[in-house]
Design a protein around this nucleic acid. Structure first.
Lengths: 222, 222
DNA sequence: GCAAACATGACATGAAGCTGACAAAATCCT
DNA sequence: AGGATTTTGTCAGCTTCATGTCATGTTTGC
């Protein structure tokens, strides 16, 4: 999960960054509004922590532009203790929650998690041909017959079905299923695919190998 | 809608009271904890605004007693600006939100409305197979035989039964049963589940382990 | 036909889960 | 209050099984 932290006090930024990383989040830090604005338009960010008091483009403007672009990205405001007007104004502009400085770190983490959880309602079911993945029960069915998949296998198959009829490279698969920074042999992906193929044979769906490019999940054509 | 306002600063109490009334709410004002406690037990209150710093029985104690009686009444805490500990503690005890003094009136009203909206009264009884949880009496029955669960066990089982037939991760369980920001080892959840399984064996219900994902409560399939 | 790319069986490693035991904390009970 | 009892969370030891790599076999494109 990528967190964008916009904070110009570098000491505070470092502190928050460290805490979040220790909770397994990937943190991008910028210290001004225009950098934030540009990153938001180009990177995959799951949630933003935004200090109101910034030099140049201030926090309000960042939120305003973000919402103007139609984004629903959850935003957590950091405000000074006395800045009541700021909080109200921020919420009006479309921020989702705020935290008053100074705050306790568990509170920050809890609020962040809550925010992301709230804004992240996943589709319940993926289906291609006779193959269906139920994200509630984490169960895979082939023509209504349940099939047991391991975590890794689930992750790979979920990614493939989301990208159905598109070619995805092994590296893309690795990036999709691994936490940031972790690596794997490309052969590992081949092994996953092999195992998955075994388990989903008979569904009207195949994982085609596109030699030199990667894999593609698609309906079987006899 | 009846609001119970517990605030010993009469100037502030009058102000808040006036604002709320102008928004069409009925307001009961008391200036101490024991009065609050007694009103809560005898009147139909929709939401409580509670100052922490009270003479006699303080705000924490009021919340504690309220929750100990099994009530889900939404509670909005009023805390002094610096009292971070108070906020965390209050949320731990089961308050639903807090507001730092001084606050803007639109914020108070907005939060209050949000709180009431959010507090949808839960069904009194959950039932899956031969297992039933009565959220009012906090009692668990297996085929009408009462079973004793501890508070934690109750909390976990309640969450599991609410999410029946869905996989919930250990972290989700922790987030669901613990107050904001508190943490636990994931192993603790394993222990809870282990203990609960012992106690509910024989109901037509099992807590399945979905390795790598979490747990799922569902009807037993022999 | 040959090399590169892919497939897959086999294996060691360790991650995930379970549970009995225990110390600390909370609660109950005079 | 304070002693007894229950609850709670962590740990350690153990089992099970998923995981990732390797070695070796197979396919594919040129």
């Amino acid at each position: 999960m990528h967190v964008l932290l916009v904070e110009d006090d570098s000491t505070l930024a470092d502190g928050i960054s460290r805490i979040l990383k220790s909770h397994g989040m990937a943190v991008d830090v910028v210290d001004n509004g225009s950098d934030a604005d540009s990153i938001l338009q180009h990177a995959e960010i799951a949630v933003m922590i935004l200090d109101i008091g910034l030099p140049g483009i201030d926090g309000f403007e960042v939120v305003r532009r973000l919402r103007a672009r139609g984004s629903h990205l959850p935003v957590l405001l950091l405000t000074a203790r006395d800045a009541i007007q700021d909080r109200v104004h921020g919420l009006e502009l479309g921020a989702d929650d705020y935290l008053v400085k100074p705050f306790a770190t568990p509170e920050l983490v809890a609020r962040l998690k809550a925010l992301v959880r709230r804004s992240n309602p996943k589709p319940v079911e993926w289906r291609v041909g006779g193959l269906s993945l139920d994200t509630f029960t984490k169960r895979v069915r082939i023509n209504d017959q349940p099939v047991e998949l391991s975590v890794r296998e689930w992750a790979v198959l979920e990614y493939l079905i989301q990208q159905a009829s598109r070619v995805v490279s092994k590296q893309q698969i690795i990036d999709a299923i691994l936490p940031w920074g972790e690596e794997l042999t490309l052969n590992a992906v081949e092994v996953y695919v092999s195992r998955i193929r075994l388990k989903i044979s008979g569904a009207g769906v195949v994982i085609r190998t596109i030699r030199g490019f990667g894999y593609m999940l698609e309906k079987e054509v006899p």
